[in-house]
Simulated assay, not measured.
Amino acid sequence: MTRYAALLRGIAPSLPNNSNAHLRGVFERLGYDRVGSVLASGNIVFETDETDVPALERTIQEALVSDLGIGGGTIIRSLEELRTLLDSDPFPGLTHGRGTYLVTTFLKDGVAPPTGLPDDPDPLVQVVGFDEEARAFLAVIDNSEPGKTPDFMTWLDKTYGKDITTRTWLTVQRIVKKLEAL
């Protein structure tokens, strides 16, 4: 059995169909084992014998649309991939806080990795890099100006559309902890 995290895009916990109970129900109906949730923002952990990640992403996304009307996008990462990312310590000496967010933006499996980054870096963003194994951008966001979307995040959305999802570093750590406890 492989342990996975499904990182769901576009989840709004205030909507009735977006509750953790409803999301877990979809995964349980699909026959996955040891289904759990992390926070209320679309992070579902589970086990399965299935190893074809693109097929898992498609199956889960189709079920989310048909069962709950959620069409935001599904990105899957294994415990091994996420543990390796955490162990790489991409944010040495940095701390996630109210004004400075450490974030990881995951690309959907099968999406081509970047050939480069925007030429004009955003003053609100320090791009730490792109982790090839985890297929994830790592960045530090200056979040001291509420409501202002950094240009880098806009670039990610324009370049990859729904084939990405972003999590704070703290959330990635919580997901790994939950996966390891399964």
Rank of each mutant, 00 (worst) to 15 (best):
R29Q: 14
L64S: 10
E28L: 13
F27P: 01
S41K: 07
E80G: 03
T95P: 09
R83Y: 07
I70D: 07
L23E: 09
R24E: 12
P16Q: 14
S78A: 01
P92I: 06
L94P: 05
P92K: 04
R98T: 14
V38T: 11
I75F: 00
S19L: 11
I44E: 09
I70K: 07
V53R: 04
E57C: 03
F91D: 07
D87A: 13
G72W: 08
T84P: 07
L85E: 03
N18W: 12
G42R: 01
G71Y: 03
V53S: 04
S88A: 12
P92E: 07
T104R: 06
G31F: 00
E47M: 12
E80H: 07
A40S: 14
I44W: 08
Q61V: 09
V65G: 07
I75A: 00
G93S: 01
L86T: 02
D49F: 06
N17G: 14
I60R: 00
R58C: 11
S78P: 00
G72P: 07
E50G: 09
E47Q: 14
L79H: 12
V103C: 11
L86G: 03
E81A: 08
I76G: 02
D87R: 13
G97W: 06
D33R: 15
D52R: 10
R58V: 13
P92H: 06
A55V: 03
I70T: 08
I70R: 06
T104F: 02
H22M: 15
V53G: 02
R58G: 13
V45C: 10
N20R: 04
R83W: 04
G71P: 04
S37I: 08
I44F: 09
G72Y: 05
G99H: 12
T51S: 13
I60Y: 01
A63W: 05
G93T: 04
S37V: 08
F46G: 04
L64G: 10
L15F: 13
I60D: 00
G25H: 05
P16A: 15
V53W: 00
T59W: 03
L85P: 02
T59D: 10
P92Q: 04
L79K: 11
N17I: 12
V35Y: 06
L102G: 07
S66A: 12
L64P: 09
L94H: 15
L85V: 02
R58I: 12
Y32R: 00
V65F: 09
E50Y: 05
V45G: 08
